[in-house]
Amino acid sequence: MAATITPEVLTDIGKEEKKGSKSDLEPGYLVICWNDPVNLMDYVTHVFQVVFGWNRQKAEMHMLQVHNQGKSVLTRESMERAEHYVHQLQRYSLHATMERDQ
């Protein structure tokens, strides 16, 4: 019996996983930090360095983009990775979201 049932179950799970994981694994999500008038510029730079491991120059460049242009796209990732970064940034009370890359 096991031999009869097993292939069907495995096939279904395989399809489900493949279908579910394909879009999740594609780097189709942008992690965006939005400007707000309350977070200190040095603080935002520091958070970018900690969360992304960037050097100060790169972190400052993105911080200035947020400040001057209202937002900065920090990275383009799979859904899972984007979610991770957004959670990290929000732990520091930054205004960060993940958006589908159109």
Partner: peptide, 8 residues
């Protein structure tokens, strides 16, 4: 206060 996404 915190939202994961503005559009999705």
């Amino acid at each position: 206060y915190q939202q994961v996404s503005k559009t999705a």
